[in-house]
Structure formats: C-alpha cells, structure tokens
Simulated scan of single mutants.
Amino acid sequence: MMILTDRKPRVDVAGVLTADEIHEIEHHVSHYPYPRAASLDALKCVQRRFGWVNDRQMYAIAQLLNISAADLEGVATFYNRIYRQPVGRHVILLCDSIACFLMGAETLSAAFQKELGIQLGQTTSDGRFTLLPLCCLGNCDQGPTLMIDEDTHGLVGVSSIQTLLEKYK
C-alpha cells in the first residue's frame, strides 16, 4: 500500500470498478446533498468484491465522488472495518477493551493465535482467517467478545474456539 496523493493521473473508473459498483455508489450519492457523504458506503460497496480496497479502487472511488484520494484515504483509515490490504475470507475481531481484558480477552487472544498458528494482524496460510484486535465491540456485559465477519459472539471461552471456527469453513 502506498500513501495516496492527488498527483496520480485520473483513472478509468469503468476499468477499475464494476458497472454494479458504479451504479450502487451513484445510488448512495443520490441520498446526500454532497457526494463525499457517501464515502463510507462507497468503500463498503467496493470492499465486498475482494474483501479489501486497493489503491486503484481508492482513486476510482475518489474520482466518482469528486473528492481527493487523500480525503477518501482518511475515511478508510479512520474506520477499522475498511481493509486496505488483503484479509482472509473471515475476519476475526477480538475485543481488547478494558472490560473484555478483565474478563479474559488476553487469554482468549493467545488461544486463538495458537489455534490458528498466526499472530494478531496476520492471515492463516490457507487464507481462511485474519485475526485482528479491536478496541471495543460495545458488548461489554458479554465479555470477552469477538466478531467473525458480521456475527458477534459474547462470553467466548477458550474451550469454544474450535467449535466456533468450524462454523466458518
């Protein structure tokens, strides 16, 4: 990943984004008084195809929204669920807030790392899982908590890791 600037030549949006992505982004733009307000929706739309947003796609989205690539990069890096590098088919987000930490998140994290054979921030060699820390999932009364893709799992214990992972083959 490179640092995006606005010195990059304009891209052929239709050569980078699919017709469906362009249509969906234009649909989102139509709901806002300013196209830049659709930035997050546009990033999510494009991310659905490969699981992450590459630099060419960032430039194409920025061009469609008529904003700078640097501004769009700011949105992408602010939201921790927009991925700017490849991730596994399933992303595991381990909450490491103080509430989850007190309920055993550190032990749970170590057990996931051992079970998957990777460290935080890495992807398994088969491309199945990426393991990432997240500062809070807002499920504090159910700690330790994690998310796999869009599914939140609370009160997760080390003994339930294998069963949980099997659900995401």
Score class of each variant (00 low, 15 high):
45 C>V: 09
45 C>K: 06
46 V>P: 03
47 Q>M: 11
47 Q>P: 03
47 Q>L: 12
48 R>A: 15
48 R>H: 10
50 F>P: 05
50 F>T: 13
51 G>D: 08
51 G>Q: 05
51 G>S: 07
51 G>C: 03
53 V>G: 06
54 N>Y: 14
55 D>G: 02
55 D>A: 13
56 R>C: 15
58 M>C: 07
58 M>G: 10
58 M>T: 08
60 A>D: 09
61 I>L: 07
62 A>Q: 05
62 A>D: 00
66 N>S: 12
69 A>W: 05
70 A>Y: 06
71 D>I: 09
72 L>H: 00
73 E>A: 14
75 V>G: 07
76 A>T: 09
77 T>I: 13
78 F>D: 15
79 Y>N: 14
80 N>Q: 13
81 R>N: 13
81 R>C: 07
81 R>I: 11
82 I>A: 01
82 I>T: 06
82 I>Y: 08
83 Y>H: 11
83 Y>R: 13
83 Y>A: 08
84 R>T: 15
84 R>E: 11
85 Q>T: 15
86 P>I: 09
86 P>E: 07
86 P>S: 12
88 G>T: 06
89 R>Q: 14
90 H>Q: 07
90 H>K: 07
92 I>A: 00
94 L>S: 00
94 L>E: 00
95 C>N: 07
96 D>P: 00
96 D>T: 13
98 I>K: 15
99 A>I: 10
99 A>Q: 14
100 C>E: 03
100 C>V: 08
100 C>F: 03
100 C>I: 03
102 L>Q: 14
103 M>N: 13
104 G>S: 00
104 G>Y: 06
104 G>L: 02
105 A>N: 01
105 A>G: 03
106 E>I: 08
108 L>H: 03
108 L>D: 00
108 L>T: 00
109 S>A: 12
109 S>E: 00
111 A>G: 06
112 F>H: 02
114 K>D: 11
114 K>T: 09
115 E>F: 09
116 L>P: 04
116 L>K: 02
118 I>M: 06
118 I>Y: 08
118 I>S: 08
118 I>F: 12
119 Q>E: 14
120 L>K: 04
121 G>K: 01
122 Q>S: 09
124 T>V: 13
124 T>P: 10
126 D>E: 04
126 D>W: 09
127 G>I: 01
128 R>H: 12
129 F>E: 02
129 F>R: 00
130 T>R: 01
130 T>S: 12
130 T>F: 08
133 P>L: 10
134 L>S: 10
134 L>T: 13
136 C>P: 08
